Amino acid sequence: MSDLERSIIEKLQVVPGERFSLKDRDPRDSSLFGDEKETKAATATLAKSIDALQDRLYSEGSRALLIILQGTDTSGKDGTIRSVFNSTGPLGVSVHAFGPPSRLELEHDYLWRVHAACPRRGTIGIFNRSHYEDVLIAKVRGLASKEAVEQRYEQINAFEKMLVENGTTILKFMLHISKDEQKERLQARLDDPAKHWKFNPSDLEDREHWDEYQEAYEIMLQRCSTPHAPWHVIPADRKWVRNAAIASIVKATLEDMNPQYPNVSWNPGDFTIP
């Protein structure tokens, strides 16, 4: 792990057990990086490194990496996936976007659909939104009782610990944007006909509950940043900073996992290709 990667993790990670406030994290912070053009080029190089490491992970076939992207509307979950994993072979990567639960999913516990979407061994799984919706929107919109939401923090921690103990490394990223930045991005969707499909009137309803969501995120981050699956708060007002930070942490994590190509039982020199 490079000194820069270590600095990024130390600055952006929510330390388990410590008091935390989103107001202490600047969504426009770019202090960890230098020139924008150089950082974008470095991010493209990181994406290629992630591809090479993912190839080793896939061939090893014994462990998995789960990446959770959580953030308000327009925070850049789709953009992160395109920018950080654009070079990664699709065979070993799965992306699951969690929307409102179906009737079948509602007939099970809230983690049932999540467990079914977790990455198989040898792969990287990316969650665009996740089980954390069940302590965010469920809390703010009153979709579950206060008692149920309160129980879910420890249930989620236990669920993630079980995944880790069975070979899945977990990276959790909260994409932190300002209310002003969200306003600009929502307006851009209205102004560009090619982006109209991205606009959802319900986004404006959620925006009316901005402060409540920020409070729900703070509680989630403090209660569910654990030693086995810590949260990282990513400054996301600047897309190039967001992409560079996440790419750096993903690459460093895969290097730390150090997947290995399996040994073969035969000698390549014994074969002649006709």
Rank of each mutant, 00 (worst) to 15 (best):
S62I: 11
S62H: 05
A64D: 03
L66G: 02
L66M: 04
I68S: 04
I68T: 07
I68H: 03
I68L: 12
L69N: 08
L69H: 02
G71R: 07
G71F: 10
D73A: 13
D73F: 02
S75H: 11
G76Q: 04
K77G: 00
K77S: 03
D78R: 01
G79Y: 07
T80Q: 02
T80A: 03
I81S: 02
I81Y: 00
S83T: 13
S83C: 08
F85I: 06
F85P: 00
N86G: 11
N86I: 14
T88S: 13
G89F: 05
P90F: 05
P90D: 14
L91W: 12
L91A: 13
G92E: 02
G92Y: 04
V93T: 05
V93M: 11
V93H: 06
S94A: 10
H96A: 12
A97Y: 06
F98H: 02
G99I: 01
G99D: 06
P100C: 00
S102Q: 07
R103L: 09
R103P: 08
L104I: 12
L104A: 12
L104W: 15
E105P: 11
E105K: 05
L106R: 15
L106H: 13
Y110S: 08
Y110H: 13
L111E: 02
L111F: 09
W112A: 02
W112L: 10
W112P: 02
R113P: 05
V114M: 11
V114L: 14
V114S: 09
A117P: 08
A117N: 13
C118P: 01
P119Q: 14
P119R: 05
R120S: 15
R120I: 15
R120L: 14
G122D: 09
G122F: 06
G122I: 01
G125F: 06
I126P: 00
F127W: 11
F127M: 03
F127L: 09
F127I: 07
N128V: 11
N128A: 07
R129K: 05
R129L: 08
H131E: 03
Y132P: 02
E133T: 10
L136G: 03
I137A: 15
A138T: 09
A138P: 04
K139Y: 12
K139M: 13
V140G: 12
R141K: 15
R141M: 15
G142A: 10
L143Q: 14
S145V: 05
E147Q: 03
E147G: 00
V149R: 08
V149T: 06
V149W: 06
V149I: 15
V149D: 03
Q151P: 05
R152H: 08
R152Y: 07
R152D: 01
E154K: 05
E154D: 13
